[in-house]
Design a binder for these strands. Sequence first.
DNA 1: CCAGGCTAAACAAG
DNA 2: CTTGTTTAGCCTGG
Length: 575
Amino acid sequence: MTGRGRPRKEKSPDSKLSKSRTRPQQTKTSPPRRAARTEKETKTTNGPKKQDPQKPDHTEEKPSAQKTRKGKTTNHFMEETNVQCRTPRDSPAPKTSSTQRSALETKATRSSTPKEKSSQKTKEKESTCQATFQKEPAKKLVTQPRTPQGPAETYGVRAKANGCLSDEITAKQTKTLKDIRRVSVHEKATNALTKMKQVSFEEKVDTTLHMTLKNLKIKKKDISCASEVVNEIQRHVIKHLKQNTICFKDVEEPLRTGSYYENLKISNPDEFDVMLPIPVDRVNIEPFGSDGAFYSVGLKRGKSSLQKFEEEFEDNSILSATKMLEEFRKEVKECLKECKEWTMTKKKRGCPAVTLTTTVQAVPISLDLVLCLGVKSSWPSFTKDGLKIEHWLGSKVKQEYKRKSYYFVPKYEGRGTAENDGIPAKDVWRISFSHIEKAIIKNHGSEKTCCEKAGTSCCRKDCLKLVKHLLHLLKEKNPSFDKFCSYHAKTTLLTSCCSRTSDTDWKASDLSPCFQLLLDDFCKHLRNGQLCNFFIPSQNLLSGPGAKMCGNLADCIKEQCEKGFPIFQQELKMY
DNA sequence: CCAGGCTAAACAAG
DNA sequence: CTTGTTTAGCCTGG
């Protein structure tokens, strides 16, 4: 890893190439990064997950981790009493002595005196959390959340998530007055306990979320390593396209899109998305299908370097996405001959990207090169009701965006042979506004200074990272969710930002409630089976997964919310 | 076109 | 916590 820090401008492409060629050997001799990391940063790194989230490996670790939790509750309780605001979640055991109980009560009243029942507002949490992060071992944070019918039952009271006391009273109606009085005494105690537990529960959620976010951060060193090789191959490919091809020689500056370049990448800098735009002017576009997301693209008459990709259909000709992508693949493959450390993955049907993979320090990295057409004219009419950012970012900003180009990527859905007006799906293009998404994410505040160093910081991006991560983990656990993707999360965030437009709706200190509100929004979309493309409202992004799966996912998310995100806690446990 | 300045984010130190 | 440093990526003015 030494010597990586030197300024890139000093390197000539050639020297870099030769250097890279030797790298595979280096990786063999040098210890895998995971091992190297354990010296220092083990607690915050995501080592175990490193290689391949899809591998079932990690499932082995979970049961054992669960075991360690069992039977430690009493001990755990004693430990916890030393920590301010960190009250037992697993319970006061039924046998809790009166002294212990009163200690708890006083603590409850002292530490928080919660006036409102369900205090969604969790103020000044951050300081507590921050301290917790540094001092407390992670294992402490990962105890099982209090189950709905928790130990409170031992007091003859049904403890509900929100402690609805009226229920409890009706349950006792048949009892004698004496009993009721006795109960009410207990109620008092329980009430305090319940409230205390709520605080504890919410705090625990808050801590879990912050810890999770912390673990999702990508290491500076990893960024350096990955970006060096990724930038190098990018430059190489672009140079090749410009110098050695005719049809792609007009390729413009790459549009670096996707999570990494939006600072939304989580866990590892292992996926890079780059769009390579070929400018086209004066095109005829025709919607393919009814939702306005796919189009056939015809070149207007006149010579063009793209003419060789035209297909004749009835009276006009269109640019065949498949042909063009094939040629692009061929050219990229050609330049990989000089970059042996990169390999190209097999073509996936309907996929717009040519995916290149390599490993840096034993860590796999993939780079998606997406050929696209850049269109400078005004956006198609299907976008008319999209991008409703007026109240959030302002209409000037909107106009600014709408003046920009838009792009087409060679992506189709379903079988390539499906026809529409005689045009096969494999020859159509999907519209893309990735550059606008990136611009919005980068400039996401209602106030211009949002998240700038002089301004107030918000939690919009953190919320999105968490939703993405949650979705990722749920998909890992349940492969039937594979039709859901991070774009659903992103679109949900953008949509939610348009309804909660103020920066104060997303205060950085309100991460937990904001995140859960965002999940609420997501679940609502899922239950309705409808999530509109942010730019093309007529396209429903949830038509793919189907109603049943949407319902299932919403159930899973709801469960996670109610239980305090055990799926995150389980992960934290591993570090 | 590209050098140099700027920003966001990670990170280290106090 | 605050402050400063480093880095990659981005933007811009000459």
